[in-house]
Design a protein around this nucleic acid. Structure first.
Length: 929
RNA sequence: GGGCGAUUAGCUCAGCGGGAGAGCACUGCCCUCACACGGCAGGGGUCGUUGGUUCAAUCCCAACAUCGCCUACCA
């Protein structure tokens, strides 16, 4: 490898090269047989249809930081990767392909369709995995899993069967969220409620045998054709006299009763609500309480049914709303229309408005599982970071409703339930593509078809609720008739059902594997708050149920990534910042560092490209600092060193303090703190001060020992910083690290990934040295300040006169005068308590020192007076503030002694400074006269 | 309706009982043999409003305002 480095860091080639190297050497692999302490994270499996967006980039950067950090810190570190089959989303993608080809899934049949999906997955499902690699993710790719894998499918079946046998899974008719476009049920979580301005229609329902009417208010007049009652609140005096009366339902001309139910809100609308048990969740419940009939007026496709009458039959629900309102208006039933704000449910996959429908579905009885999951968090077995999310979790878990797990799609884990066609042939309705109106299984058989014929041509089937399912991991015989003509339940499971098992199914469950015993429970789960319910809660429930232990100990919830204006990034808004484009432009390290530096807990990330560019510049800074180090060290480093200079000791102290801080921050998941601390250290301490201070030592040819020591400290500090930084910026750190001479524990190592994460050496943290360097920096900065303010060009050389008390700080300054001279760019320096201020000189007053820069013949001197006056004003204000405090007897008496003492000390210093400056001003003014 | 969070320099955000900070942007000087994706220096904030607790409040408490998010059978 060439030692010559380019002037700017070029990430592209570096990243590809090192990632390939790491993979080739198997450095991401965790060994289940290792006796090192395990540390494990399972990836929140990205959707196979997805491509990497900023949310993924953040999520995976943070996981990779944890994993790389722990791996370096000596843990057997496993990052379990994989993807999720994303039932509805994936099915939609492939259906779109088919549609382009002029066909659809029904035409090709279920088997062929599934084949197509697998084919699509082979070709396109790897996209996001490749993108994760570009980000630098150090996942154990040998173990990559997919939720539809054989092993994971086995886990799904096992769980289903066990939950069913325990009565925790059941099949029932219930009102569920139905997407009329996807043609499937959705769980409550899969519905997005969007605030919409709709219309509240007030409709007259005449009272039979009276001239009066009850006026109901509704946002969905099209469902009125399915009304089977009108409900009022039992406490509502306005409706006392209509209780038990019958109303005439307009248009339908049916009689419906007035009932009373406590759920009705007296304040809302007219206080009377139409009840449509088949098309509204609340009405469904009312219907159950009052034994109301369910009249289905909207079908699976969102069209009006036969039940809604000839006029409306077949009409789309949106159109029928208009038409019904029109008819009501014409017939004088419409009392008024008013705009109304409400939340309308949309399918989270396709944005279609969901239709609540009563359907036969499979559910998980969730309360018993939720109770344990609540306890695990209450008892501290799982902790959320930041802690505030625990409330969100509890809130949801305590109000949880049964989970609808069946989906009427084809791509997914088909429900392992079987029905005997011989016993129940009449109650199994078969729909085939050429005959979309269903026929009973029994009839088909009588028509001469064989069982196999029927199964091969089935497009969809409906199995009556009364047909008893036989739940089994594989096809079985009927326990009643011992027949083998079984048909499998056509539904598949909610994708999140298999995701919930991810922390143990990926480790081999239900087999008792070494992986499971080594890595379960995992250590941390890193995810966004948007899937706490979808995923985190369900993993906890399933982990506790089937592993008798929590799936992870820490749940780190990170922010959402938004654009610079705080808007959610979305393709339709056109405000997405594509992480891959950012990686191409600035490098993966810059992107990763940006995301981690901005990952403050509890706050969303407003990302702008400027920030990424800024951290790209940081990469370049590191690169050039390393260039400098390498240019000036040619095999000169030593193993054992004594005789550090002050800056050597200082940088070692700062470095070890940093190491301590970073470890503490990472332990608390404060990625932002850790990133900012190392940025500050490398740029503003190592580069700005240490390297500058090292220059005079390195450039001086006469003292080889001193030079050698500084070269060694420089390399050591750089090398240690790189290791500290590696989890954040894996690529550039490896690239530079490989070129550095190595010392001690890291010598001979193949990769920075294998090098130990730095541990702080407390003995090198030295408060005295840090204070001394601060004093030197103060002198240097104030000379530079005078240069700047007095407009002394760099080409003009100056002298420094430094008045400091002997026995106090004069020695310190004298000892390090060469550094002061070099760093302040002075040609000469004089130090002592007997220094006399020249008439024409710029002055600065520091703690324990006064600085004079003689300006006679150097530069126009006019700037000095205003400069001092500005300084004076500042100090006066500070003194005034402290004065107030010290004048307050309560403060003196009640505040802690050390605080009072500190204030007094500050007061002494400031007044001393004030006097000196005032003196200087007087002299200047005298000079002018 | 309920809950949570935010409000600090032009922008994005740390800090959270005793000296207002960072990054970017801005201003001036400088292409000084690591880096102009740079160096040095500098300007800029009554820490949302009003009360309260305290010797002391940007920080704790209460109310209000504005914004954001989550949640709900808002018919």
């Amino acid at each position: 490898m060439s030692q010559e480095l380019n002037k700017t860091y070029e990430p592209k080639d570096v990243e590809n090269r090192w990632y390939a190297f790491w993979e080739e050497k198997g450095l991401f692999h965790a060994d289940e047989n290792s006796d090192k302490k395990p540390y494990a994270i399972v990836i929140p499996p990205p959707n196979i249809t997805g491509s990497l967006h900023m949310g993924h980039a953040l999520n995976n950067t943070l996981q990779d930081i944890l994993i790389r950090w722990k791996r370096m810190a000596g843990y057997n570190s496993l990052w379990m990767p994989g993807t999720d089959h994303a039932g509805i989303a994936t099915q939609n993608v492939v259906e779109k392909q088919l549609s382009k080809e002029g066909t659809d899934r029904h035409a090709i049949g279920r088997g062929k369709f599934i084949e197509r999906v697998w084919k699509w997955r082979e070709e396109s499902g790897g996209t996001i995995i490749r993108q994760l690699k570009r980000l630098g993710s150090s996942c154990d790719w040998d173990r990559e899993r997919f939720t539809m894998d054989e092993g994971l499918s086995e886990a799904v079946k096992e769980v289903f069967v066990r939950l069913y046998n325990e009565g925790l899974i059941y099949r029932d008719n219930y009102i569920i969220n139905w997407c009329p476009r996807c043609h499937t049920a959705l769980s409550d979580l899969e519905v997005d409620y969007i605030d919409t301005t709709g219309t509240l229609y007030h409709i007259r329902y005449p009272i039979i045998g009276s001239k009066d009417a009850v006026i109901v208010a509704t946002t969905r007049p099209e469902t009125m054709l399915g009304d089977t009652a009108v409900a009022t609140n039992p406490d509502d005096k306005r409706y006392k006299n209509v209780k038990g009366k019958k109303l005439l339902l307009p248009i339908a001309n049916r009689e419906i009763p007035v009932i009373e139910d406590a759920v009705v809100d007296i304040e809302f609308g007219t206080g009377a609500v139409k009840v449509t048990p088949a098309h509204d969740p609340a009405d469904f419940e009312i219907g159950k309480r009052h034994n109301l009939l369910q009249i289905v007026v909207i079908d699976d496709s969102g069209c009006m049914t036969q039940e809604s009458g000839d006029k409306y039959k077949g009409m789309r629900r949106e159109e029928s709303r208009k038409e019904i309102v029109k008819q009501l208006e014409e017939e004088g039933y419409l009392v008024k229309k008013e705009p109304h704000q409400h939340a309308v449910g949309h399918c989270y996959r396709c944005r279609t408005i969901v239709e609540p429908l009563v359907k036969l579905q499979w559910f998980v009885k969730i309360k018993p599982l939720a109770e344990e999951a609540i306890k695990a968090v209450e008892g501290g077995k799982i902790r959320f970071i930041p802690k505030g999310w625990e409330n969100t979790y509890f809130e949801w878990m305590r109000n949880i409703k049964d989970w609808c797990i069946s989906r009427q799609i084809w791509w997914g884990h088909q429900i392992p339930a079987w029905y005997c066609c011989d016993c129940f042939g009449d109650m199994i309705t078969i729909f085939s593509h050429d005959k979309p109106s269903g026929t009973s299984y029994a009839t088909l058989r009588k028509g001469g078809k064989t069982h196999e014929d029927i199964l091969s041509s089935v497009d969809r089937c409906v199995i009556d609720k009364s047909v008893e399912p036989i739940v089994s991991k594989g096809k079985t015989r009927c326990p009643k008739c011992n027949g083998s003509n079984m048909i499998q339940d056509p539904d598949v499971l909610d994708t999140w059902f298999s995701s919930a098992l991810w922390p143990f199914s990926t480790l081999g469950w239900p087999q008792k594997t070494k992986e499971l015993s080594t890595f379960y429970p995992t250590d941390a789960l890193v995810t966004g708050f948007d899937i706490i319910f979808f995923w985190v809660a369900r993993m906890i429930m399933m982990g506790l149920k089937f592993m008798n232990d929590v799936p992870f100990k820490d749940v780190y919830i990170h922010a959402l990534v938004r654009d610079a204006e705080g808007q959610k990034m979305s393709k339709s808004k056109g405000n997405v910042i594509d992480p891959l484009i950012m990686i191409d432009k600035y490098g993966a390290d810059a992107l990763r560092f940006t995301l981690s530096a901005m990952a403050s807990p509890g706050r969303d990330i407003k990302l702008s490209e400027d920030r990424i560019e800024g951290y790209r510049n940081f990469c370049n800074k590191i690169w050039n600092a390393s260039r400098f180090a390498l240019m000036n060290v040619k095999g000169d480093i030593k193993k054992d060193i004594k005789g550090y200079n002050i800056f050597d000791r200082w940088i070692l102290s700062r470095l070890n303090r940093l190491t301590r801080e970073i470890t503490a921050s990472l332990q608390e998941y404060r990625f932002d703190e850790a990133a900012n601390a190392i940025y500050q250290f490398i740029w503003h301490e190592f580069c700005d001060w240490y390297l500058e201070a090292a220059k005079p030592v390195i450039y001086k040819k006469d003292d080889a020992d001193k030079r050698n020591i500084t070269q060694t400290v420089m390399i050591h500090s750089l090398e240690t910083s790189l290791r500290l930084l590696h989890p954040f910026m894996p690529f550039i750190t490896e690239e530079i690290w490989q070129r550095l001479p190595k010392l001690g524990a890291v010598s001979g190592m193949e990769s920075i990934m294998l090098a130990p994460y730095p541990a702080a050496d407390e003995s090198l943290i030295d408060d005295v040295i840090e204070e001394e360097v601060r004093l030197l920096q103060d002198v240097i900065s104030c000379v530079r300040n005078i240069r700047g303010e007095m407009n002394i060009p760099p080409s003009v050389e100056i002298d420094i006169l430094l008045k400091a008390e002997e026995g106090k700080r004069a020695d310190l300054y004298r000892q390090h005068s060469e550094y002061i001279k070099f760093l302040a760019k002075a040609k000469g320096i004089k130090i002592g308590s007997d220094i006399v201020k020249p008439h024409i000189a710029a002055t600065a007053v520091l703690k324990d020192a006064e600085v004079y820069i003689p300006l006679e013949g150097v530069v126009n001197f006019d700037g000095e007076l205003p400069r001092l006056q500005k300084e004076l004003e500042k100090i006066k204000k500070e003194i005034e503030f402290i004065n107030k405090k010290l004048a307050n007897q309560d403060f003196i008496n009640k505040a802690p002694k050390d605080v009072v003492e500190k204030e007094k000390e500050k007061y002494r210093e400031l007044t001393e400074k004030l006097n000196k400056i005032e003196e200087g001003i007087k002299k200047l003014e005298a000079l002018r006269i």
